[in-house]
């Protein structure tokens, strides 16, 4: 499969758009699964967190009492799969009484810069998010 893609030589911009809170429905977990699977195909992948999707990134999630796996630590692994751009919409955070301080501190290691840790979360306004979405080749919405 990867050989076929290399022959084509085309790298597309894939956006996974997240608009749902983590545990009320299965969408958020499924989106993350798809991102991890898709990461194997060496495409230009980014994630967007809009509306209730921003709740997926809050820190100190603890699901001990609800019998559902806490999948938030998996976001920390995305950097190892070259998924390093997590766009978070400022307005969506503010509407929900949150700031970036309420979110996990997600970083990736830049192998071209002596493995320096760099932030994965990119805070953008709604207008900036609109432009980011308009710049994609493929958008998958969850």
């Amino acid at each position: 499969m990867s050989e076929d893609m290399e022959e084509g030589g085309t790298v597309k911009k894939f956006m996974y758009m997240n608009r749902k809170a983590p545990y009320g429905t299965i969408y958020a977990l499924e989106a993350l699964e798809v991102v991890l699977i898709g990461a194997a195909f060496d495409q230009d992948v980014s994630l967007a967190f809009i509306d209730d999707g921003v709740f997926q990134l809050t820190k100190d999630q603890n699901t001990d009492d609800i019998g559902i796996k806490n999948f938030s630590p998996a976001f920390r692994a995305l950097g190892d799969y070259d998924v390093t751009k997590l766009y978070v919409e400022k307005e969506s955070l503010a509407e929900r009484g949150l700031t970036q301080d309420d979110l996990m501190d997600l970083v990736w290691e830049d192998e071209d810069d002596d493995w320096a840790e760099k932030p994965s979360i990119i805070m953008v306004s709604r207008d900036e998010m609109k432009k980011v979405l308009g710049d994609q080749d493929v958008i998958m919405s969850f």
Binding site: R19, I50, D51, R126, M129, K130, D135, Q136
Partner: peptide, 29 residues
Amino acid sequence: MSILHTVNKSPFQKNDFSSCLSHANAGDA
């Protein structure tokens, strides 16, 4: 790059339509 957005939820139940309209660029449908 223009996008066709589809919305299949009632605006009285969910904010999909509103959020979509505020994220759609000129030239999108």
